[in-house]
Simulated assay, not measured.
Amino acid sequence: MVAGLVLAAGAGSRLGRPKALVEVDGEPLVRRAVRLLRAGGCAPVHVVVGAGAEELPALPGAVPVLNRGWRAGLGASLRCGLASLPAYVCAVVVVLVDQPSLDPAAVRRVRAAYAAGASVAVASYAGRAGHPVLLARVTWPAVARYAVGDRGARDFLRARADLVVPVPCDGAGSPADVDTPADLAALSPARPGQR
Rank of each mutant, 00 (worst) to 15 (best):
V49H: 10
L29W: 06
G52S: 13
L59C: 09
P57K: 08
G73K: 01
G26T: 05
S77C: 10
W70G: 01
D25T: 09
G50I: 06
H46K: 05
V34E: 09
V65C: 05
A43P: 01
A43D: 15
S77Q: 14
V49N: 03
E27R: 15
A58K: 05
G26C: 10
L78C: 03
W70M: 00
L78K: 03
G69D: 14
L74I: 13
R35S: 11
E54I: 06
A43K: 04
C80I: 00
A72E: 13
G41D: 08
G26R: 11
L37P: 03
G73E: 01
A58N: 01
A33T: 10
R68A: 15
R32E: 05
R68V: 13
S77W: 04
N67R: 04
G73A: 01
E27I: 12
P57F: 09
L78R: 03
V30C: 09
A51H: 08
G50M: 05
C42N: 08
E54P: 02
H46L: 12
N67V: 02
P57R: 10
P64W: 12
C80N: 01
E54R: 14
L74W: 12
L74Q: 09
R68T: 14
L74V: 14
A58P: 06
A72G: 00
R71D: 02
L36C: 04
E55S: 15
R38V: 11
D25V: 03
A51W: 03
R32G: 04
N67S: 10
L66M: 07
P57I: 07
G73Y: 04
H46C: 14
S77R: 02
C42M: 10
G26H: 11
C42Q: 10
L59W: 05
R31I: 12
L74H: 13
A76Y: 00
H46R: 13
A53C: 07
L37Q: 06
L29E: 07
A62T: 07
L59E: 07
G50Y: 07
L36N: 05
P44Y: 08
E55P: 04
V65P: 02
R31D: 06
V65L: 02
G50N: 06
H46V: 08
A58V: 07
E27W: 06
G41A: 11
